[in-house]
Nucleic acid binder design. Structure first.
Lengths: 227, 227
DNA sequence: TTGCATCCCAGACGTACGTATAGTTGTCCT
DNA sequence: AGGACAACTATACGTACGTCTGGGATGCAA
């Protein structure tokens, strides 16, 4: 799932209090240095690269972070790198900086989810504000992702049968209906249902249903209301 | 809620098959005319204005639509008009067109949710593609909104007590707990709970809980699990 | 072979849910 | 004064849920 990260384990509570890291990809060495200094001056950690390729070859720590990305780069362009990161499932918020940007570039970047797009020269504070917004966005995304990952790992501890029962129960079927659907005795469904509640740590059916919602679990045989 | 619309009634199924309308706000009269012709040529309905004020003074039909908006306008600028529409709770997808745009304008527009930002001159097809994307976005937003509105209107048919019971039941409390919470007899909660299921047209508790999710209903006294 | 997990079921018991019947209050509107 | 509706309760009964005890069967790995 995480793929390119040196991940700290699936269901872990992670290092929530770790300082955010600002990645910088900028080919101009003096610009790169001044960006690094800028972020250091406000106490942020920085990892800078001269090209997209360099960053892809490095190990990316799995902590709150964002990316300050020059649009014009040797090799892969900033915009293409944005696309590539999305393809690799790396959802680091991106702030573009550019000396010679135009509107179509800006539109493309923003459509693909960039946090901001700054033209050089820009004021330091502009960039810092954008970085704060970006890290905040990453934090929220990670919080949400963490919850899903925890539920997911619990769900995976369920046996196939238990998962099947969970889906149908969450769809609103009665035990006897679940039993009929799966070709089981009702008592068996009751037992598995109990296992599901324990393993998922659901205190009530309401809990369990909300969990299936955040997990995106849908029974194949629903007939819902919801209109 | 709908405010400035000549709304067709809260819970109605609306006119789903009505053709989409493209609103145009553009002060240059020849440009306005050519945009109108362009959209007419592909069979779309168009309503064009010379300024934001004119559009605000008109009655806006409550159907699938989008707005093609010039950035530079007499009076309220296009960008300010975008903000104003959001403030008025009019969520029409916006496509900006401009002759003299710059990157900060583009960023602001896209951050506030614009579908696209096109610089003149642009190819007709570019604009048409953007309009198709915009109307599609509006259609989806309306579909989702319709579901919420239906549920909302059902929820409003509940008496205050029934609403209170619904919240606590959906939070996962047992009837006896709901009763204690509200200072009622358990039998009373059972009765109201039955009313809730009927009035909300929920076939199962699972249904009801999902409804509270899409309505964003939270009990004030939860103690959830969900981590 | 032993151990363990998964899958499956029966009987039994206590609790929770849902609804029907039948009532008492009170308020607001006509 | 009468009617409609909200709020509230009791008794009663049938159904659904949840868990316990106590099994059976497979299959896989140590």
């Amino acid at each position: 799932m995480t793929g390119r990260f040196d991940s700290p384990g699936e269901g872990s509570n992670a290092k929530a209090s770790t300082k955010a890291i600002v990645f910088v990809v900028e080919d101009d060495i003096s610009m790169r240095r001044s960006l690094t200094n800028l972020f250091h001056s406000v106490g942020m950690d920085v990892i800078a690269f001269g090209s997209a390729r360099e960053m892809l070859q490095s190990t990316i720590p799995d902590v709150i972070s964002c990316l300050v990305l020059d649009v014009r780069l040797p090799g892969l362009s900033g915009l293409d790198y944005q696309t590539e990161l999305a393809r690799l499932n790396i959802h680091m918020p991106i702030i573009f900086i550019t000396g010679h940007g135009d509107i179509p570039m800006t539109v493309r970047a923003m459509k693909e989810g960039a946090v901001d797009f700054l033209s050089k020269p820009f004021r330091d504070q502009e960039l810092l504000d954008a970085v704060v917004a970006a890290t905040e966005r990453d934090r929220k995304r990670r919080d949400a992702q963490q919850i899903v990952a925890n539920l997911q790992s619990r769900f995976e501890t369920l046996s196939p049968r238990e998962q099947g029962v969970m889906k149908l129960v969450a769809a609103g079927l009665m035990n006897k209906q679940v039993a009929a659907e799966l070709g089981l005795a009702e008592i068996t469904v009751k037992i598995y249902r109990g296992h599901v509640m324990k393993k998922m740590r659901a205190r009530s059916l309401a809990d369990l249903i909300r969990m299936t919602e955040t997990l995106g679990i849908r029974a194949n045989r629903p007939e819902q209301t919801q209109v």
